[in-house]
């Protein structure tokens, strides 16, 4: 050992006292007589001394306690929010799904309504055509009936046309004439009773000549 230079590991171990006493003494004896190893050892000591200077360096650190704890609370809240996101997303999906299904139903109902309306419109048109075909004159149209003036002799013709057009109808006339596709209605009173739910007075007084009618014509209402 005495005639062989110490390697850096040995010097470093010597500095840290990480060697046995025996090896330590041998190293120290070598350093005492070897200028080269002594120089290397001194350089290492200075290097470590500088690092120790850094250790003693007083860095000014602001009080981070309150900031750190505040930051911790904020992150905790944020994390809670992030955790809640899947739940919120799931709820949103459920609500959307339910709304979608409801819409489907609504849309379906809507279609039915549309088709019903369409049928009603068709019925209306067919009634109008029937009245015209029977040489009648349309006086008034409501959602539930069409009022028209028609010559008394043309009433059977109108009934025939309505039947021919496959229209289910009930009509009453102010002159006491009643025609219906529903067998249960036999006379005006029956029709009055049957159609009472329409919340529309069936026998409104019609003065002769009103609405362009004369003694030979009847004012009739054809209910859809």
């Amino acid at each position: 050992m005495t005639f062989q230079h110490l390697n850096f590991d040995q010097l470093s171990d010597l500095l840290d006292d990480e060697i046995t006493d025996e090896v330590k003494q041998t190293c120290l004896r070598h350093i005492a007589i070897c200028e080269n190893c002594k120089h290397e050892y001194e350089l290492l000591c200075k290097c470590i001394h500088l690092l120790n200077e850094a250790k003693n360096e007083a860095l000014i650190i602001p009080d981070i306690c309150s900031n750190t704890l505040a930051l911790y609370q904020a992150r905790k809240r944020r994390r809670f929010m992030y955790k809640a996101i899947p739940a919120i997303a799931a709820s949103f999906m459920v609500i959307t799904g339910v709304a979608f299904l409801s819409n489907e139903i609504f849309f379906d109902q809507g279609s039915n309504r549309i088709s019903e309306t369409h049928v009603m419109e068709n019925d209306t048109q067919r009634i109008i055509s029937s009245i015209r075909d029977a040489d009648g004159r349309i006086i008034r149209m409501t959602e539930s009936y069409i009022e028209s003036a028609i010559h008394k002799k043309d009433l059977p013709k109108l009934e025939q046309i309505l039947k021919g057009n496959n229209l289910k109808y009930s009509f009453v006339s102010t002159s006491g004439y009643a025609i219906t596709s529903q067998k249960s209605i036999k006379n005006i009173e029956d029709a009055d009773y049957k159609l009472g739910f329409q919340s529309e007075p069936i026998h409104r007084p019609v003065s002769p000549g009103a609405n362009g009618s004369d003694k030979n014509s009847s004012i009739i209402r054809i209910f859809k």
């Binding site: 850096f8 590991d9 470093s12 171990d13 990480e18 290492l44 290097c47 690092l51």
Partner: peptide
């Protein structure tokens, strides 16, 4: 130990 030795040598 090895890392400390190499690091010190490098820095020195």
């Amino acid at each position: 130990k090895v890392r400390i030795h190499r690091g010190r040598e490098y820095l020195k």
